[in-house]
Computed example of a mutant assay.
Amino acid sequence: MASNNSIREVWNYNISEEIDMIYKILPFTPFVSFDTEFPGTIYKPDVPNYCLTSLPPETNYFYMKANVDALKLIQFGLTLSTFPDPLSGSVRSFVWQFNIKDFDVDSDVHNSDSIALLKNQGIDFTRNKVDGIDSGLLISMLTDCGVFGSKIPHAWITFHGAYDFGFVVKILTGSPLPSDPITFMVLVRQIFGESVFDLKHVMKSFNGLYGGLDKLANTLKVERRSGTQSHQAGSDSLLTMEDSRTFWNNPQNDVSIATFDLLNYGKLTFFPDLSDEENIYMKDGSIFEPGVMSEMSSIIVSNLNVDHLARTVS
């Protein structure tokens, strides 16, 4: 199997053409991974690090909500992937890195250690302020083109993704996150659909899999794309996708992927059970509706002409 295409950098001056490209590709890519970069965490429970995993789900959600509500997005990474070609087994992955202008390193709250790490990994905060994209505009455009809320079934894949989902929910609704995790997960289901997986949760069920995204990649013998950096959202979203594909294609992992669907089993780091769905109200007061791509849901992705798709994004 092989993925191709470099990470496409997106700024305010080329976002329209890149969103149009996503619109064209989305019906043929049933697998979606995403990642966000944000300025660290500023609220943490007063317990040793080794105790964090044993905290109650409600406590973990409380701190996640506090941080997401207070912080601003820096980058959003998106990877769309096809089914393997029936003849060659090759897979096409298409990757975008959206650079966000919201965060001001001089005036907005942040974790100084996290900012130093992101600078070291190549994020240019000055350019983001000048050429970056408004996060509200980005999420709105991704919704309109069908990435969020589409009736086309997609499998969403993350790594330790609670904060990633949190930022999307906050920006799309234009409101602080709900006060309880149940309501939050209802919103996740309505925005992202019925199939959501977190590799951090999945790996806990298998011996020898532990640590962060790069540690998992090393264990699975997955190499990060040459010339890309960790802690940049596009590269991390692609590595998440490639880790997941390598894991599920291992014949020793004969358990069904559906076993780990976070929305069926409530394992987005902190979650009990889902309640009945309610309407999502966006910041203009309107009810959230599926994206305009929904009429294309009858396309059979297994019949994808991969060469044609490659020309689309060339």
Rank of each mutant, 00 (worst) to 15 (best):
F98L: 04
S256N: 13
P86K: 08
P178V: 08
R311N: 15
K204L: 13
F62L: 14
D243T: 10
L137S: 09
S235I: 04
H160Q: 06
R225I: 02
T126H: 04
K204Y: 12
Y50W: 13
C51G: 00
D261E: 11
L238V: 02
I19C: 03
V301S: 15
I257M: 13
G146A: 03
F34C: 03
L137I: 13
D180Q: 06
C145H: 07
D180H: 08
F34I: 01
G40Q: 04
I287K: 12
S107M: 06
L187T: 03
N49I: 07
H201Y: 14
T143N: 11
Q75H: 10
P272C: 00
D134W: 00
V168R: 10
S237L: 04
I74W: 07
N99Q: 08
M203V: 13
G146Q: 05
L262A: 15
F197R: 02
P39E: 03
T36V: 15
F270C: 14
A66I: 00
K221E: 09
N111G: 10
D35M: 03
M1V: 10
L87S: 05
G149S: 05
S179T: 15
F62M: 12
P272M: 01
S107L: 08
I287Y: 09
S3P: 01
S235H: 01
S54M: 05
N279T: 12
M282H: 04
R8N: 13
R224W: 05
F103N: 07
F38M: 06
Q75I: 09
Y210H: 14
F159G: 05
I191V: 15
S175I: 00
W96M: 07
I19T: 02
E277Y: 07
F83E: 15
N264I: 06
K65Q: 14
A66N: 13
S150I: 10
I74Y: 08
V32H: 02
D131F: 13
N264C: 10
N111Q: 11
E223R: 13
T143C: 05
M64R: 00
M241I: 06
M296P: 00
N250K: 00
N4K: 12
C145V: 15
D134P: 00
S297P: 02
I191H: 11
V10F: 09
V222K: 12
D69N: 15
E37L: 02
N49S: 14
Q97K: 07
A155W: 10
A116H: 11
S175H: 10
I74H: 07
K101L: 12
I123L: 10
G40L: 03
Q97P: 02
A258V: 06
Y265A: 01
R92K: 13
S294A: 00
G227P: 00
I152R: 07
S81Q: 13
T219G: 01
R311A: 11
C145D: 04
L73I: 11
D104K: 14
F98I: 03
L268V: 10
W248I: 09
N279M: 05
R245L: 14
K204P: 02
A217W: 02
M203R: 13
S88G: 08
V301F: 03
L71K: 07
I25F: 09
S16D: 14
S112E: 14
L80F: 01
Q75R: 04
S3L: 12
E58W: 08
